[in-house]
Nucleic acid binder design. Structure first.
Length: 255
DNA sequence: ATGGCCTCGGTTCGAGGA
């Protein structure tokens, strides 16, 4: 079973990229973030025609998450029962006995801003729900755009980023707290190339300079971590015309 | 060199992203 997370930065703009990528990579579950589409505009027919079922929770202009699956999708929950949020950033569903939590964690803008405080509160709410879901779903994956680079090795230039948004200690503490639930960072279960990231700024020739960060993650419960045989980042679509600034992260689980 | 780019809405520039 292959599970993927990809922040597409507008599914309207990137639908063809998603379909092209799926054709080359017929994965089981693809979680999308930043679809930026209200539900009435969601391209359900195109995705179903590609052989995928889909559930989504969107809004106009900002945010929006979706789960595409080649297998039946059940027990869908939109948003977090423990955190009332008008922004559409969280979607959970059960697929093949695996509880899938697709998250678009707030960006946070910068420490000492209201958006950062929102990020912290949002993460507190996520911990609460995560703890409950883990009680009933030992096979659980939390994946998405975390907007957190967990360690310095996940940052192209750690010295330049000390204390800044995406790498600040309170954010990293939240990430560690997720691991304290027993979740494993799938990417770090394996030997990985150095300086491999999941996001590169559109500005400053970020991708060409490999000035990126690893902020998109797949966290596996202990039972799923045992089944994980690989986790890779696919930089291919970042090289396509008019790409998303993020690229897919793929985890493979044995049956 | 603290900017740079991209998307959206809704009209030509501001907000948000990371």
């Amino acid at each position: 079973m292959k599970l993927v997370t990809w922040n597409v930065n507008s599914l309207k703009v990137r639908l063809q990229h998603v379909l092209d990528w799926l054709k080359e990579n017929p994965v089981d579950v693809l979680c999308l973030q930043e679809t930026k589409l209200s539900d009435d505009k969601f391209p359900t027919a195109e995705i179903e025609a590609a052989g995928y079922q889909v559930v989504f929770s969107g809004q106009k202009t900002y945010n929006g998450v979706a789960i595409l699956s080649r297998h039946p999708i059940t027990d869908v929950v939109r948003n977090n029962p423990f955190y009332d949020d008008p922004q559409q950033r969280l979607l959970a569903a059960t697929i093949n006995g695996v509880r899938v939590m697709c998250a678009y964690i707030p960006n946070g803008q910068a420490p000492d801003t209201e958006k950062y405080a929102y990020k912290m509160a949002w993460l507190d709410g996520l911990h609460a729900w995560l703890a409950q879901e883990l009680k009933t779903h030992p096979q659980l994956v939390l994946l998405g755009d975390f907007n957190i680079a967990p360690e310095d090795r996940d940052v192209h230039d750690p010295a330049a980023w000390v204390g800044q948004n995406l790498v600040s200690e309170p954010e990293r503490e939240h990430f560690k707290k997720m691991l304290a639930h027993g979740l494993k960072d799938a990417f770090r279960l394996f030997e990985q190339p150095e300086k491999l990231f999941s996001w590169w700024d559109y500005r400053m020739l970020g991708f060409r300079r490999n000035a990126g960060m690893r902020i998109d993650h797949i966290l596996l419960s202990p039972l799923l971590a045992e089944r994980c045989t690989a986790c890779v980042i696919d930089k291919t679509p970042r090289k396509w015309e008019q790409p998303s600034d993020h690229t897919p992260v793929i985890a493979t689980l044995s049956d």
